[in-house]
Amino acid sequence: MQRLRRIIYESDSDDDSENENYAVRRPRWIKERNDHFNNYDDEDFRIRFRLSKVATYNLLVKIENRLEFISERNQSVSPVNQLLATLRFYATNNTQLTIGDFSGLSVPTAHRIIHRVSAAIASLHHEYIKFPNTQQEIRQNQQEFYRLARFPRVIGAMDCTHIRISSPGGEQAELFRNRKGYFSINVQTICNANLEIIDIVARWPGSAHDSLIFNNCCRKAKFEAGEYGEGILLVDGGYAATFYSMPPLENPRTPVEHLYNESQIRTRNPVERSYGVWKRRFPALSLGLRVKLNKALVIIMATAVLHNILRQRGEAVPPDDPEVELPAPWEVLLQNGQIRYENEDSGTPRGNRARELLINNYFRNLM
Rank of each mutant, 00 (worst) to 15 (best):
S52C: 12
V54H: 01
Y22V: 15
E32G: 05
A23W: 06
Y57D: 04
K31C: 04
V54C: 01
K31G: 01
Y22R: 10
R28S: 12
R33K: 15
R48N: 15
W29V: 10
I30F: 12
L51K: 09
R48L: 03
D44I: 08
F45I: 09
Y40G: 03
N34T: 11
A55F: 00
R26P: 04
N38Y: 08
E32R: 02
R26Q: 15
H36S: 01
D35M: 06
V24Y: 11
F45H: 06
L51V: 11
N21L: 15
L51P: 03
E32L: 03
D35L: 02
N39K: 13
W29Q: 07
R28F: 10
R28G: 02
V54M: 00
A23M: 05
D35I: 01
N21R: 15
R26G: 08
D42Q: 12
I30C: 13
N34E: 09
V24D: 14
R46A: 12
R46S: 08
V24P: 00
D35A: 01
V54Q: 01
A55G: 02
N39F: 01
I47G: 02
I47V: 15
Y22S: 14
F37W: 14
K31H: 10
D42G: 06
K53V: 02
R48G: 03
N39L: 09
L51H: 12
A23D: 13
N34P: 03
I47K: 15
R48M: 09
V24K: 08
R25Q: 08
R50V: 07
R28H: 11
A55H: 00
W29S: 10
D41A: 10
N21E: 15
A23Q: 12
R28Y: 08
W29L: 08
T56N: 04
F45V: 07
R50G: 09
I30A: 04
V54P: 00
I47H: 06
V24T: 15
I30M: 08
V24M: 10
R33D: 02
F37V: 09
K31E: 05
K53M: 03
R33C: 01
D35T: 00
L51E: 07
N39H: 02
K53D: 07
V54L: 06
R25S: 09
D44S: 12
R28W: 11
Y40P: 05
E32A: 02
F37R: 06
N21T: 10
F45R: 07
N38F: 05
D41P: 04
W29E: 07
T56M: 03
N21A: 14
T56R: 06
A23K: 09
E43I: 11
N39I: 01
V54F: 01
V24C: 12
P27Y: 05
P27D: 05
W29I: 13
D42S: 09
R48V: 00
A23T: 15
R50H: 06
E43H: 15
N38L: 10
